[in-house]
Write a protein that binds this DNA or RNA. Structure first.
Lengths: 230, 230
DNA sequence: TATGATACAGTCCAGACTGTATGTAAATAA
DNA sequence: TTATTTACATACAGTCTGGACTGTATCATA
């Protein structure tokens, strides 16, 4: 009667995979809650409920763990963004829903808190900066086709370079969300955020329109459904 | 012939004042260069070229120093913003100049780097958050009258609440700049920032106009010229 | 089943950081 | 001048962190 023995026989790959997942999840959690500097190895392994040895076995040093967590983080955001894009597929007021959903499901989440910690840390860590750069690039590679899939230049806009314009407007959107997210906790009136989202939506509607009759999901790259870990 | 003796007799208040300035300047510098977590008391006093005892004499603990540095930082930004607002006083393309100057002289500076460090730290430090909140409020109390002094709702805009609209558009502006500043180091193409500034300027010009013939400086609150230290 | 590889646990250590305590010089007050 | 407060300097104590190191359990393979 071995009550303690788990007796679940797992393959080495399964064990490693599960352990790495626990460590990465704990790291991202810790980044969001305790910040970059507060995310010590000790606190992370405590949060993950594993030993110090497990961490050192899978990640030779702290930077390796952080980098992998950053990758994990961006991959999650990537998938969340995908869900957001799909969720606004057959709406009438598509832009408004997209704005709202992007804020609520992406920027007003612990995930973005963790990301912003990495962002400021990357100001002084070229390796981390390069990693974030590459990941941002991948995210935009998904977002931009989706934007073109759903939206078009508003008629009568005398703007040259339609495609570039849409991209610029959505880059503006991301900057606005980033700025809002970084300051939102200082606003005593939470309605400010809603008002800002509404304002941008109105402005954007001046230069773009949702394509009519688009009921298919946006282009979905292959790596979309790739598992979180390589 | 006392070669070493400085023999400059200073009053106690002068000594304290000078020392505090050195400490605050070093702290803000350190925040910008080494980040919040990297700004240790040891590194700050080393940067300031003073001893550990000087710091502990003027600031009982780290938080007190950081809080005072935050105050100093916001006060500097406050004055810089004032200079920016005055510098665009008699320009024709006032909005464009204001945008450019605000970016270059405020957000693309080490000062804002330091501020952004405090901003993320304030996510987990309620005291710091409250301090930043109060100081932001003071800054906006200067900025908003200046905005109304220089700009007006564009004619033919069917928007209710002119005053509130202008405020919202400039809050959008500040969020955009904050977002840009937090990510700018990831953009490999520095032209992105310029393009974004241009884009926002164009959009803002749709809803506002520079008042004609305004050649007086914006309202200048009394505390404007108050010295940095109380 | 025997042997080696992999996964994980727990501990130790050198360095760094903050706060404190004590000592000295400079300025003000008496 | 002398006494006393203020400004600064130095030394130290306690805590924490990240990396190294050793030992044990689990899995793969022959």
């Amino acid at each position: 009667m071995s009550t303690t023995a788990p007796a679940v026989r797992r393959t080495q790959a399964e064990r490693s995979d599960a352990m790495r997942r626990r460590l990465l999840a704990a790291t991202v959690e810790s980044l969001a809650e305790d910040g970059y500097a507060g995310s010590t190895l000790s606190s992370i392994v405590r949060r993950a409920g594993v030993s110090r040895g497990a961490q050192v076995h899978h990640y030779p040093n702290k930077q390796a763990l952080i980098l992998d967590a950053a990758d994990d983080l961006l991959r999650s955001s990537y998938r969340t963004l995908g869900a957001v894009l799909l969720s606004v597929a057959d709406e009438d007021n598509r832009l408004e829903m997209l704005v709202k959903a992007t804020w609520e499901q992406l920027f007003a989440t612990p995930l973005y808190r963790a990301y912003s910690e990495l962002l400021v840390a990357s100001q002084r860590d070229p390796v981390l900066a390069e990693a974030l750069r590459g990941m941002l690039l991948r995210v935009s590679k998904v977002f931009e086709p989706a934007v073109e899939h759903y939206f078009m230049q508003a008629p009568g806009m005398p703007a040259p370079g339609t495609r570039e314009n849409l991209k610029a407007v959505f880059l503006q959107f991301s900057c606005l969300l980033a700025g809002l997210a970084s300051q939102a906790h200082l606003f005593n009136d939470p309605a400010y955020v809603a008002a800002q989202l509404k304002l941008w939506t109105r402005q954007a509607q001046l230069v773009m329109r949702a394509r009519k009759g688009v009921r298919t999901p946006p282009p979905r790259p292959a790596e979309w459904d790739r598992p979180v870990l390589d």
